[in-house]
Design a protein around this nucleic acid. Structure first.
Length: 291
DNA sequence: AAAAACTGCAACCGCTCCTGT
DNA sequence: AACAGGAGCGGTTGCAGTTTT
């Protein structure tokens, strides 16, 4: 490595942004898009490095950024997602519309960390990949995930499978103006985990195990694609779905087995709760999504 | 009222990943 | 296949504002 920092060039301004600089940046991006961040400062008339411009835009000036304090729901989501993916702030931010990774990271370090410590919860393990043997920590963090369990239980008992919303009523501290809160569908939860380090580990292991059988690997890839299509609402390939649903469900079962047996993340080892919906619920969800 | 300590957030830095050649 | 450059990410720092002594 050892590449020269982009801001080492003489004369480039550093430090807090002025309102004038903000205006130049916003005006330029709204008129032209950001294009190449490296070229942007020159084109926009800013004496900054492109990296600084990108950061200022993505963390502060973007019009879709949500300002103000984190809601109780957002706090819970952050805790739950951090328990799943660790310090993957961008992944967590992707699940919280309007919040930036930097904002979430700061909020975690300044508020949630202390809050959880006060509640008697230690520092969480640094993500699932490194956390497998740390059973004690996992057990502690499992309790922090109970909110997710409650939601999924509600979902399961109501028989709802496709994208659903419920009104937030789970906490006295929840804002009464919070309105309906999106609830993860089984496919959502599966997809998030599949895209996390856990899914990654699984794919590597599974690929090694079936290396002699390329057709199985292909089926795996197809199933993943199908999952993604379902999650994004893309129904262009809705025709031959029975087989694909079966494959996806098989993958899901394998995934549960692997995560439960190899990683010990759920299924009772740390308290008898499962973060994931049962296979039949996933199947129903996928079939609905593919229709 | 003043100084010290603490807190929270914006911004920077260095690294890795991704993509094009 | 190897390399270079750009973009993005996570950790850390600096500093302004607030609280405590």
């Amino acid at each position: 490595m050892g590449r020269a920092p982009c801001c080492d060039k003489k004369g480039l301004k550093k430090g807090p942004w002025t309102p004038e600089e903000d205006k130049l940046l916003v005006d330029y991006i709204q008129a032209n898009g950001h294009g190449s961040w490296r070229l942007l400062p020159k084109l926009a008339g800013l004496n900054r490095c492109g990296k600084s411009c990108r950061l200022r835009w993505t963390n502060y000036l973007r019009p879709d950024i949500k300002r103000g304090p984190f809601t109780a729901e957002e706090q819970k989501s952050i805790v739950q997602l951090h328990g799943i993916v660790g310090n993957k702030w961008s992944m967590i931010a992707a699940q919280l519309p309007g919040r930036t990774d930097n904002e979430i990271k700061n909020y975690w370090n300044t508020h949630l960390k202390k809050q959880l410590r006060r509640m008697g919860l230690d520092e969480p393990p640094p993500g699932p990949a490194a956390g497998c043997p740390a059973a004690r920590h996992m057990a502690q963090w499992e309790t922090a995930r109970l909110e997710a369990e409650v939601r999924l239980s509600l979902l399961s008992s109501s028989g709802a499978a496709a994208a659903t919303t419920i009104t937030a009523t789970t906490s006295a501290s929840s804002s009464s103006t919070a309105g309906p809160v999106p609830v993860a569908t089984p496919a959502d939860v599966f997809l998030r985990l599949w895209n996390s380090d856990i899914g990654d580990s699984f794919r590597k292991l599974a690929a090694a195990a079936v290396a002699e059988s390329p057709s199985t690997v292909k089926a795996t890839n197809d199933a993943v694609k199908q999952e993604e299509a379902a999650a994004t609402g893309d129904d262009s390939s809705a025709a031959s779905n029975e087989v694909e649903v079966a494959e996806a469900v098989d993958e899901y079962q394998m995934f549960l087995d692997f995560a439960g047996e190899e990683l010990g993340l759920f299924h009772g080892r740390h308290g008898g709760f499962s973060l994931f919906p049962p296979v039949d619920l996933l199947e129903a969800s996928l079939e609905t999504a593919f229709k």
